[in-house]
């Protein structure tokens, strides 16, 4: 079976050494397979572990048990065990992540932030900047902001920079954490369009969509993340 991303028997818990070593289990024996061109929306109450799962899938949180397989350059890589360099390479070429908030890098203009992952993949600077410009324009970020560092931007403006950065490289696998949370209706439409295009070119997408309308329009299916204490 062909998959782009697959979690097998994934478990994750947090041990809080500073609070007497208490262990909080969040994910257990989770199985998730996402095919190319498919968009899976994570559902479940808040606190159930949706964001934890997303972060595990990105390699930001280490997996406690199980495997996280990703199709990377026609090979299968287990993010749970891959070393830091391989995870970076997967993130550069295969796996994108749009978080809820832009992590602002001081003094770097918006357009450079968007173009940076393109250049990291070897796209020429001019072409990368042109693509960044086009995406920011499509996301209705005023042109006068393109060459300013986003530190002083509004939440919605920062989120659009973040989205442009996530969509610019055309990753085969894309993780979206509340991509439309702080956007107005027009920009929500733009994001829905971007997701549809990504799916059309074969990208596998896993998302957390609080907005039911957006979720219904982009998701092919829901994946329920249930809180462990209820499941148990």
């Amino acid at each position: 079976m062909s998959f782009a991303l697959r979690a097998e028997n994934l478990g994750k818990s947090f041990t809080l050494h500073l609070q007497g070593g208490v262990t909080l289990p969040v994910l257990q024996a989770l199985e998730l397979t996402v095919a190319p061109g498919e968009c899976v929306a994570l559902s479940g109450p808040s606190g159930a572990g949706k964001s934890t799962l997303m972060r595990c899938l990105y390699g930001n949180y280490g997996a406690g048990s199980g495997r996280i397989l990703i199709r990377h350059h026609d090979a299968s890589v287990d993010l749970a065990t891959a070393d830091a360099r391989l995870v970076r390479e997967v993130r550069r070429d295969t796996l994108g992540y749009v978080s809820q908030f832009l992590r602002v890098i001081p003094r770097v203009p918006a357009i450079e932030i968007v173009a940076e992952p393109l250049m990291a993949r070897g796209v020429a600077r001019d072409a990368a900047l042109a693509r960044a410009e086009a995406l920011l324009t499509r996301l209705n970020l005023p042109a006068r902001l393109h060459h300013l560092p986003p530190a002083t931007f509004s939440g919605g403006e920062q989120q659009r920079v973040n989205l442009a950065r996530g969509f610019a490289p055309g990753y085969p696998v894309l993780l979206l954490d509340e991509p439309t949370a702080s956007l107005d209706a027009a920009n929500r439409e733009v994001v829905i369009g971007l997701i549809a295009e990504a799916k059309a070119r074969g990208a596998a997408i896993v998302g957390i969509f609080h907005d039911a309308e957006v979720r219904d329009r982009v998701a092919d299916r829901l994946f329920d993340v249930a809180p462990l204490h209820e499941a148990a």
């Binding site: 947090f14 809080l16 500073l18 390699g59 949180y61 280490g62 970076r88």
Partner: peptide, 17 residues
């Protein structure tokens, strides 16, 4: 390990501190 993993999901008590 990877910078963001060590800082966001620290495992060792000292790193958590």
């Amino acid at each position: 390990g990877l910078t963001d993993r060590v800082l966001d999901d620290p495992q060792h008590p000292y790193t958590q501190l």
